[in-house]
């Protein structure tokens, strides 16, 4: 009888979501819209196999409970992408607080190994002004990404994800890595590849991290 209880406990431990592969990500069928590994075919939602590198957990947890539209034109693999600005963009399913917390914890574990962490010093006001200028004129980022103008209003194109709240949404290190080598994450992006020198790349990273919805006016 004692053996039976032991087996029962071991079985429960093995099959509980924390220790088994039967995770909430599977239960919620996230893979219907999101790639969970790079070898899969492109899907309509953003890739999640590097979610732990890319997203800030507090933002993700909040997003899963109150999804916001980041791509007004839809995602790039959507068949209607580029045809029109979506009037009612398909929203992400809303999760309850508990599920949002658990799934965020699971997603934070999904990382690509060996991505370099880079320490970047805060920007001076002059550097921010210079980078803003380059963001708009030298690298033309504003043509596809919304950011904040000097009056604190969103400004820019919509084919790329909005960067209005990028500072709360993305991890600094991911931005730096994306700018250096986007192919690590995706072979199919509609963004130009930039060969920025290190100083510029890190300055851009830090600049993108200054874009926060709190600065909207």
């Amino acid at each position: 009888m004692k053996k039976f209880y032991h087996l029962l406990i071991i079985g429960w431990v093995l099959y509980s979501p924390k220790f088994s592969h039967a995770s909430l990500i599977e239960e919620k069928n996230c893979s219907a819209c999101h790639r969970l590994s790079k070898v899969e075919k492109e899907k309509k939602g953003p890739d999640l196999f590097y979610a732990g590198n890319k997203y800030q957990d507090t933002w993700l947890e909040e997003y899963l409970q109150n999804p916001v539209t980041l791509r007004k034109a839809g995602t790039i693999n959507n068949p209607d992408f580029l045809k029109r600005e979506l009037q009612n963009p398909q929203q992400h399913p809303i999760l309850n607080k508990n599920d949002a917390l658990n799934i965020t914890q699971e997603l934070m574990l999904m990382t690509l190994p060996g991505l370099p962490e880079e320490k970047i010093n805060p920007l001076t006001k002059g550097q921010i002004a210079k980078t803003k200028y380059e963001f708009e004129r030298t690298f033309s980022c504003i043509s596809c990404h919304q950011s904040l103008n000097l009056a604190g209003k969103p400004r820019g194109g919509i084919s790329g994800p909005s960067l209005v709240n990028a500072g709360n949404r993305l991890k600094e290190s991911w931005v730096a890595n994306w700018l250096k080598n986007p192919k690590i994450f995706s072979n199919k992006s509609r963004m130009p590849v930039y060969k920025m020198n290190n100083e510029t790349r890190l300055r851009f990273t830090k600049f993108i991290m200054t874009l926060k919805k709190e600065n909207l006016r």
Partner: peptide, 10 residues
């Protein structure tokens, strides 16, 4: 216009 980015690395 500067809105048109450089595609030379892409």
């Amino acid at each position: 216009a500067p809105c048109m980015p450089a595609w030379g690395n892409t």
